[in-house]
Each structure stands twice: as C-alpha cells, then as structure tokens.
Design a protein around this nucleic acid. Sequence first.
RNA 1: CGGGGAAUGGUGUAACGGCUAACAUGCCCGCUUUGGGAGCGGGUGAUUCCGGGUUCGAAUCCCGGUUCCCCGACCA
Length: 419
Amino acid sequence: MRQSFLATRVRKEVPVDEVSLNARLLIRAGYIHKTMAGVYSFLPLGLRSLNKIIGIIREEMEGIGGQEVLLNGLQNPEVWEQSGRWRGDADEVWFRTQLRVGGEVGLGWTHEEPITDLARQIVHSYRDVPFYLYQFQTKFRNEERAKSGILRTREFIMKDLYSFCADEEEHKVFYEQCAEAYMRVFERVGIGQQTYRTFASGGAFSEFSDEFQTVLPAGEDVIYVHKEKGVALNKEVYTDAVLARLELQREELEEYPACEVGNIFTLGMRFSDALGLLYTDGRGTQVPVYMGSYGIGPARLLGVIVEMVGSDAGMVLPAAVAPFAVHLIALGESDVVQGAADDLYSALTDRGVEVLYDDRAMSAGEKFAESDIVGIPRRLVVSEKTCAAGKVEYVDRATGEEGRLLDTAVAGILQELSA
RNA sequence: CGGGGAAUGGUGUAACGGCUAACAUGCCCGCUUUGGGAGCGGGUGAUUCCGGGUUCGAAUCCCGGUUCCCCGACCA
C-alpha cells in the first residue's frame, strides 16, 4: 500500500479528553476513529491489525475443532425469556428497541440463548455431540460507563465459542483444550509472558470460571499471581476458602492490576435445561447437553497490546499483529531515490510481502516520527545515501539496533523480514 | 447510576457584559529545505453544544436540556 493513497493520516495531536494510552495512540496512528463514547470505528490500518488478531484466534479455534458460524445482533426476546435473562435487574446491559410492526427486540450482548436454541436443530442423538461452534460477531452492551479507550466499549466484536458435550467428563477435556488454545493465542500476539490463567468468579453462570488476565497498569481488575506456578486468582475470589481449594498461600502471591483478555465458563445444563436442548442417550433417555462458553475480545486484545508496547512517542507492535510486515520509507524526491524505492516496493509486494510504502513528499523527520507512531516493527529506508552505496537500510525496531545496510537483492531482504 | 469537571475553526487554547471572536497548530498555494515533526510569504477554516431568558448589547450572566471526560459502584 502506497502511503500517499492511504485514506488516513498520522496526527500530531489528539483530543485532550481522550486519556487512555491505547486510544490516544491508535487515534494518532490513524487506526481508529471515535464515533461516540465507548464506540470506535476501525480504519484501514486498525482493521488490518484487528484482522491479524482475528486470524490467529480463528486458527487456534479451528485447531481444537471449532466450526465457525455467524449469529445475529438482533435478538428475539422469546429465547431470553426462557432463560430468565430478558428482563434483568441491576446489572442490565441490554440495548432494547422496537420493531416497526410492533414487538420488542434486543441487541445481543452474548449468545448463549440463541445458540442453544439453534443447537436444538442439530442435536437429537448422543451421536450428534460433541461439537463446538464459534463466531466473530458484534456485541452490544449498554455499559453504565465506557472507559479505557478500546478496552471497554459499548459495541465490540467478540470471538465467542460454545461447546456442546454429552456430559461433564467430555466437557472437561474440551475445556482444558480451549484453555491451552487461549494461551497459544496470547503467546502468538505477544502478551503470553504477562498473561495468567486466573481463577475467578463464574458470574451469572457458575460458581467459578477461568479468566485470562494480562498484567497491565491500565487494567481494571486486581489479581494475585503465583509466578512459579504461572497461575493467578482474581481479587473477587481472594478468600481463605478459595486459597485452600487451590492450595495456594497468601505469602506466595503478588498483587497486580490486570486486564481480562479472555474468559471461559462451564455452563453445565443451565441453558440446555432452560431451552430444552436434549439428546437421546444410548439407553433411550432424554439428557440435557453439557455446555461451556469461551470469549475473547479481539479489539480489547489490540488495546492491551498497544498499552504494553506504546508510549506518547510511538509503538512497536509485535510482527504478528502489525498491519504491515514492513514500512518502506523513501527519503527525498530525486528520480534515483524514487526509482529505487518503487522497484523495491514492487519486488517485495510481488513476493507477497505486505509493505506500507511511504512515497510522500515530506521531510525525513516527519516520516520517521510518523513511522514510529504507526508501529510497524520493521523498516526499510531508501535515500540518496543508500542509493549511492547500492544498498538499502534495514531497521528492526524491536531490538533497538542501529540500521544495517543490506544488499538490494530481494532474497536477502526477505530473509531478514522472516527472521 | 452516585459524585466531580468540561463544552469556542480539524486539534490545543484566548477573549472585563461592548470594535469584524484572537493566537498557535493543522490544511491549501508558492518558494526554500531534505537522515528525526525545518523556514519564509500568501490563503482556507467558527451558527462560540442546543433551546429559552435577562440586557441597548451575551462566547461571557440566568434557567432547562444534550454530549464528553474523570473518580466510584457495576461488569458475560
């Protein structure tokens, strides 16, 4: 992509009332646009990053047997009435609206009910389970207070997976597989080291659940980490009873602020009972399906990554999450420089490398400053100097090394990029 | 939802109840410059959040509303 053609620009300033680092940086870099409080649009660069994250999650979900579906934002109150979650109480998060022909609909904030209803069309016999459905779908939550930039919004895409098993035993196996897949996702997007499987309350579903918490100053949660064991527990369940159950001692734990990047729940028969999702077992009796639900918010994940790798001077995104593999910068407008940069751009894109090519007529200082903010971890610089030497400069921003002069042959450059 | 703060060109700010709402930045044009947000000149850009009221006169004072931000509570 030629940057002269990119539909967004890097900004020097950002509205003063946007305080969270992730939103400030992503707005400056032209990744996102704030539509209203707690509602952000994704622009070309931001969507590319978001799609990288979504791609990684999708691979891991497919890897454990997940099958992708797409449910709806609009919700029929009927199925929610069956589970008792249509008319809530204090923790109401519904956006409700009216159909023109009469009747109420809601905007979905999670999908246990509709997917359980859907599964009734799939499940009849014990031969039909287990299976696992997942989706990337827009959730709407009428949060009382949106905050922390894209970490807590009123509309967001969520990856939600639902497991349908014959019994608790079968469920537990998948539950652990999914927990492992989640850790692989967090490792691949670059936050594995700081992310802990965290024992937590089960909310509306069960007594306990497992969260995945990333240690982060901007996080809203407080967790107690056992570094040796690589586990943690949420402050909300930090009691003697729970500590005894987990065989942990208070003095072994360290307190940290953290952000929840994933959460997995055992639902058991809470929804299959309520909605009549039954199968016939080998003896001919009708049994409720044993369910679980598993969520990750890709946009929140991007926000957490930015919080970790960003500052007011810019960011260096992990390669797996960056919108482009390399930022090619042409310094100067001479025919020699332009020609060499154009050639390099073509050669790399022809080889399938995703290149953001800064071909604009701007000063070197501006280009570097903007590139620092855009956050692509690898940089190629073409200038009078490099052309005179018959080379191109390569910078791996993540290591902080000085730039190295490489031969302009594409093969060598490809090797550096894939290193 | 409780408490606190704010709203003026795209962005950041200024303006005693009184002159054509000012300055910086951005953006556009020209010249110059070109390895870390450079310089000069010219230009563009505002229904001062909305609706009432007070006044000869309102960005400014009063009433109502809306939106935004922060702290707290809440959070599959």
